[in-house]
Design a protein around this nucleic acid. Structure first.
Lengths: 223, 223
DNA sequence: ATGTCAAAATTGGCTTGACCAGTCTTGAAC
DNA sequence: GTTCAAGACTGGTCAAGCCAATTTTGACAT
């Protein structure tokens, strides 16, 4: 299943990752529009749309005739990982924030969104059965819930924390963490969360989300 | 003197005016891209860039194959914010995160830290009485609490969100928000939070923190 | 060697025109 | 009147080109 979002959003995500991976540090200049567009395999107008989104977010600054510059971390509230921030802390932070967000989400969730979440989990199961890592489905599940309260800042923080886990640095730490079995367990935990949302039970959803992320952190460390 | 800002920003302003004037009520459809571009005397790509900005702001919704629709006032009422993230959202995010963090903080706080927080509030009172803005004391109070659970990531998020409130863009929105009176009220709310921590009462602390940041958001908007 | 500054290269800003891909409308067939 | 497929919308994307601002280059004077 390919990404159905608009192209500029997908491009913005990819550029965010370029920045966030440290390939382009704060203050540094991104490749020229023409070059970056070719590098990403998209047209210049589409790239420009993505750059405007990033500019509005405060992630970059566009200077006419000069170039595209990466702004400081604080503005983009990015999650570059200075020393002292362990994987366990990352999952604790996610547990704290997402279990709070889901309480609000449970109160406003619509039937359509429940169907969407169900589809995401079905897609996740297919990926696992075919031996692939359902990272994108995992991300969509958590982000869809995080967007429900209608707070773009909270949604952005949840997305950033999720992406941090799959950054190259974390990948090195993680090693062979993501086995087929651990993904199956994670899927089951997602099912519990969804069941709580379907029951419109905020406290059960909160508990399920907290439990899932805590357990996910332990699996990460024990491997 | 002609406007030197980027074209997409000027176009976004003009479309906002079209919406705001009531020419296109919430829920109604804007003219098609091609037509609107001609009507405004600009190219379609430039108009599209403006529409993306408005979409991020939450002023419009773009539905492929269908049209461009004006969203409800509530979202677009938070105008002028160059970010898609409004001040209210910022304070909501802080309320959600900090009220969660303080629950853990209340469980591990030491007498030394309580004394430190008391000193910070005393310093805050002095600043207010001398007509200065106790922003640094405010920051220390919130950050000291956020650091208690021992999670560097959560502490950094709290710091980033605090700093974002005093960014240039927020300053423009804030206007005359920070009067001596509003700071006195904020100080009183801090006292309530500290009292709950001194009583080692996590739920009271949580409620006090949530109440403080919610009220702070309202004061921000109402001025 | 060094500083100056204008030409050239580079970069973002914007337009035109075209075609693709969803969505909606219309009207003929039943 | 109902159905449903063809056509007419609408947004999505791409290609190529020219303009305007900035930066770099290098010839020239010192």
């Amino acid at each position: 299943m390919h990404d159905t979002r608009r192209l500029y959003q997908q491009i913005a995500d990819r550029v965010r990752i370029l920045i966030h991976d440290g390939r382009y540090a704060p203050g540094s200049r991104l490749p020229a529009e023409r070059e970056l567009a070719q590098q990403l395999g998209v047209s210049r107008p589409s790239l420009r749309e993505a750059l405007i989104a990033l500019e509005i977010e405060g992630a970059i600054e566009i200077r006419m005739g000069s170039g595209i510059y990466v702004l400081s971390i604080s503005k983009s509230a990015s999650i570059a990982s200075p020393l002292g921030e362990s994987p366990m802390e990352l999952m604790e932070a996610r547990a704290a924030i997402e279990s709070t967000v889901i309480v609000q989400a449970a109160g406003v969730i619509t039937d359509e969104t429940l169907v969407l979440l169900r589809e995401i989990l079905n897609s996740m199961r297919s990926e696992i059965e075919e031996g692939r890592k359902p990272i994108e489905q995992d991300r969509q599940f958590h982000l869809t819930i995080a967007e429900l309260p209608g707070n773009a800042i909270l949604a952005r923080i949840v997305a950033n924390l999720f992406d941090e886990r799959h950054s190259p640095m974390s990948d090195r730490i993680r090693g062979r963490f993501e086995t087929r079995q651990t993904w199956s367990i994670a899927l089951a935990e997602h099912e519990i969360i969804l069941a709580a949302l379907e029951a419109r039970n905020p406290l059960a959803a909160q508990a399920a989300m907290f439990s899932h992320l805590s357990a996910s952190g332990r699996r990460w460390l024990e491997n």
